[in-house]
Design a protein around this nucleic acid. Structure first.
Length: 154
DNA sequence: GCCAACGTTGGC
DNA sequence: GCCAACGTTGGC
């Protein structure tokens, strides 16, 4: 099993939104970054555990736990001219973008702010893209050690 | 293949 | 709202 961190802007789609979906599950569409796509498409497995992160908000940080609930498949929003992340270069016969379903598991007892995680950028979280300057990856791997460390802060 | 211009991300 | 950092695009 793998561990991941997924970023989402709570104004667009929050952990509460995920929790209130039917079956508490949502297709994670709109990923349009190749690095993120490759991890999602090639490495995500059903049951992988996810740190759910809120970005671009008052207190950015890890807010909950989710899990991968499907195998990767083509992202249909890339084919839809009306969709926000429509990509004319993605074709159903040769999809460029992929998604997995994400299922809600739980909220953390408290938000673990990015500012707090950054205290450990030279320690337990060394090398984690999230705490490195200028990083913009919205899908990133988390090591088992980082996973345990972050949840121990809860 | 280089790189300037441009668009986006996302913390602050 | 600002702006640094980064990825992508496209002319050459």
């Amino acid at each position: 099993m793998n561990y991941w961190l997924l970023k989402s802007e709570p104004d667009t789609f929050s952990l509460d939104d995920l929790a209130s979906r039917p079956r508490q599950t949502e297709p994670w569409d709109g990923v349009r970054n190749y690095q993120a796509r490759n991890m999602l498409r090639d490495q995500m497995r059903i049951g992988d555990q996810i740190l759910f992160y809120h970005s671009n908000c008052r207190i950015p940080g890890v807010v909950g736990i989710a899990e991968v609930a499907s195998t990767p498949r083509a992202d249909p929003t890339a084919f839809d001219p009306q969709a926000k992340h429509f990509d004319p270069k993605s074709d159903p016969s040769r999809p460029r973008w992929y998604l997995v379903d994400v299922r809600y598991l739980r909220h953390l007892e408290r938000t673990i702010p990015l500012a707090e995680l950054k205290h450990h950028a030279q320690g337990a979280l060394e090398g984690m893209p999230l705490v490195q300057k200028g990083n913009r990856l919205s899908v990133m791997p988390v090591t088992p050690e980082q996973w345990r460390f972050i949840l121990a802060l809860e």
